[in-house]
């Protein structure tokens, strides 16, 4: 090849090769996206799913587990002692400090996503752990009566799902809280 005698020609030729090869490469990479994105949750899975639940049969001290968005949710009707315990816990003792007030809409009703924040097991309703809440059977995380992590490997408190009370005995889980609550959350 005549590299030295015809530099301009070589450059122009190289440009076309590089341009077409890179265009093909970019096209190929972009075309991969649908094949990757198809594995993300589909529209019907993402569709807003709400679960309405009747609270009236639950007696104080009882915990029920229901399903929402393929996850278990605890609904616990707390006794006055349990509420007091939760409210009195000093924030300094908490791994993930949060007041009990910030985790409930009505102190009597504790509603939590029942997924241990360590590795996703469901904490046990029977083994209440050292703090009267829940004990995760997988790796021994102890939660208190507000669902906050007190001991063990879990890094965070049990999450609170969006919910709203439709009446004193009906709760809608999955529905965003009323606008006032929503702004409070943002603020």
């Amino acid at each position: 090849m005549a590299h030295t005698t015809d530099n301009a020609n070589v450059t122009r030729r190289d440009f076309i090769y590089v341009a077409s090869a890179s265009a093909a490469a970019v096209g190929g990479i972009v075309a991969l996206w649908p094949f990757i994105d198809q594995m993300n949750p589909a529209a019907d899975t993402l569709a807003l799913k709400e679960v309405e639940f009747d609270l009236s049969p639950i007696v104080p001290g009882q915990i029920v587990t229901i399903e929402w968005q393929k996850k278990p949710v605890f609904i616990r009707r707390r006794t006055p002692e349990e509420i007091k315990e939760a409210e009195d816990a000093p924030l300094a003792d908490l791994k993930d400090p949060q007041t009990d007030d910030a985790r409930v809409q009505k102190p009597e009703w504790l509603i939590l996503v029942a997924t241990c924040t360590h590795l996703g097991c469901v904490p046990s309703n029977q083994l209440k752990g050292d703090f009267g809440g829940w004990l995760c059977p997988c790796h021994g995380s102890h939660y208190d009566t507000s669902g906050r992590i007190r001991k063990g490997p879990a890094p965070k408190n049990l999450a609170v799902p969006p919910y709203q009370f439709l009446s004193d005995t009906k709760v809608l889980i999955g529905a965003a809280p009323k606008p006032a609550a929503a702004t409070a959350e943002h603020g």
Binding site: R13, I16, Y17, A19, S20, A23, A24, G27
Partner: peptide
């Protein structure tokens, strides 16, 4: 549009080569 542009580029590359 992308494919038409790419085919034009490849055609030029092919002719030069």
């Amino acid at each position: 549009i992308f494919l038409i542009a790419l085919s034009a580029l490849l055609y030029l590359a092919y002719r030069r080569l």
